[in-house]
């Protein structure tokens, strides 16, 4: 169990180090998945299997998928196909695969050894849910508000409805003469450039 913890933490630290040193976002995301899986193994070794499952489902599943969606959407262009070919080269996925193979080996040893002390939960599920919905019920409702605000905010901000830039950005062109600041002239070319960039 202690060995399980040490191997997982070494994998987590190495993967996180590679995340913050990678140049391409997609490589960093692959290593980030490995990092989350390794932290999930640490949770398992701490006797918190529920949290380990949530880590895999929510962090390594939902959040990573969201990040990958955005990275893919921002990379649209004529070089996208070329990039796709580059991403499928072995040197992209060999590093994460080795680290994940270490974790998989760990987990299979844990499963094959049968009744292991590591899977015994330190706190049983019933107590967690009782505390969650008794003492922390206000916090649970506040988290519900937070998630609602997050959904509405993301839908509103992500809405793609931009026909003209903000009024601060366009007043150099339209009512710029009404303004009395004298540095209006030097602001103007940049704003014109900006507007035509936005219209493109």
């Amino acid at each position: 169990m202690s060995l399980l913890f040490y191997i997982s933490s070494v994998v987590a630290i190495v993967a996180t180090l590679l995340v913050i040193t990678c140049h391409r976002p997609i490589h960093a995301l692959l290593y980030l998945v490995v990092s989350f899986l390794a932290v999930s193994m640490i949770f398992l070794s701490l006797g918190a299997p529920f949290v380990a499952v949530l880590e895999v489902i929510l962090y390594a599943g939902a959040i990573i998928v969201l990040l990958i969606f955005v990275v893919m959407m921002l990379n649209l262009g004529q070089e996208a196909a070329l990039q796709e070919k580059q991403w499928l080269q072995p040197k992209v996925w060999v590093g994460p695969s080795i680290l994940v193979a270490v974790l998989l080996l760990e987990m299979s040893i844990l499963l094959l050894r049968g009744e292991s002390a590591a899977i015994q939960p330190a706190v049983d599920m019933k107590r967690i849910s009782l505390v969650l919905f008794k003492e922390y019920v206000i916090a649970v409702e506040l988290v519900g508000f937070l998630l609602m605000a997050g959904i509405v905010g993301a839908a509103h901000i992500g809405k793609h409805k931009k026909k003209h830039p903000h009024r601060f950005l366009q007043n150099g062109k339209e009512n710029g003469h009404a303004d009395n600041n004298e540095n209006n002239k030097e602001v103007k070319p940049g704003e014109l450039l900006k507007e035509e960039m936005i219209h493109n």
Binding site: L67, V70, G158
Partner: peptide
Amino acid sequence: GQPDGQVMFLFILAMAASEISVALALVM
């Protein structure tokens, strides 16, 4: 041996999820 740590982890998880969704909309 207390359940509070795991409860706090649930809250951190929810906060991280909502934060990343709003932040990615801002990035777009």
